[in-house]
């Protein structure tokens, strides 16, 4: 489960950006504080980043910074749940969540019903895991319940969803990041999703 890290210098070289830009984006909260990981190396203190997250984020900033001001960008990237709402019928039409999920978990809701962003997010996460073939329908139901019950408690704090299975028995956990976790033997970590990432992906789809 160890995340691959990239040092600040490698990052700047790879993306062709300068220190000034990086610090600027950090001040504007385009890059969250908890991604700056300090480690001591033989050349002294160095800063590292989670590689997949930071590369995706920088691509996103570079793509959008021509069209949007940095402040607008910050709104778009902030982990706060945005005020997007969507009707169930639109959700189906735009294929953001597959119809199987909606049939299974939202069949009793009328098609005019308006879902808030967090409900959309729960469906999205469930759909994502189902599509990846990592989870069964029953487990999906449990997941939905877990998210409904516990996700709002994190408010704006970043959190990860962990899905583990041992001897066929599955369970879910939500944890605030950054955190290190170790399991006993025989536990299989089926999936670990960053909810912050999911929020962003979903936001990208909705806009």
């Amino acid at each position: 489960m160890e995340r691959e890290l990239i040092s600040k210098k490698e990052l700047l070289d790879e993306k062709g950006i300068s220190y000034g830009q990086l610090y600027r984006w950090k001040r504007k909260q385009l890059i969250p504080e908890e991604w700056f990981i300090r480690k001591s190396t033989f050349t002294g203190q160095e800063t590292f980043f989670p590689k997949d997250l930071i590369l995706a984020r920088i691509d996103k900033i570079m793509n959008m910074k021509d069209d949007l001001s940095l402040d607008e960008l910050a709104d778009k990237l902030s982990p706060l749940l945005p005020a997007y709402e969507m009707r169930k019928s639109d959700l189906e039409k735009r294929n953001i969540v597959s119809s199987i999920v909606l049939q299974r978990f939202a069949s009793e809701d009328a098609s005019e019903i308006v879902y808030t962003f967090d409900i959309l997010l729960y469906f999205y996460v469930v759909d994502k895991l189902l599509q990846a073939g990592e989870m069964s329908m029953e487990e999906g139901e449990h997941l939905l319940q877990t998210l409904r019950e516990h996700f709002p408690k994190f408010e704006t704090k970043p959190c990860d969803l962990v899905f583990i299975r041992k001897m066929g028995v599955s369970s879910f956990a939500l944890l605030s990041v950054p955190v290190e976790m170790y399991f006993e033997n025989g536990v299989k970590v089926v999936a670990r999703l960053s909810m912050t990432e999911c929020i962003e992906q979903l936001k990208g789809k909705l806009v």
Binding site: S18, Y19, G20, Y23, G44, Q45
Partner: peptide
Amino acid sequence: TSSIEGDD
């Protein structure tokens, strides 16, 4: 200070 990073 221990380090200074910047453009100019």
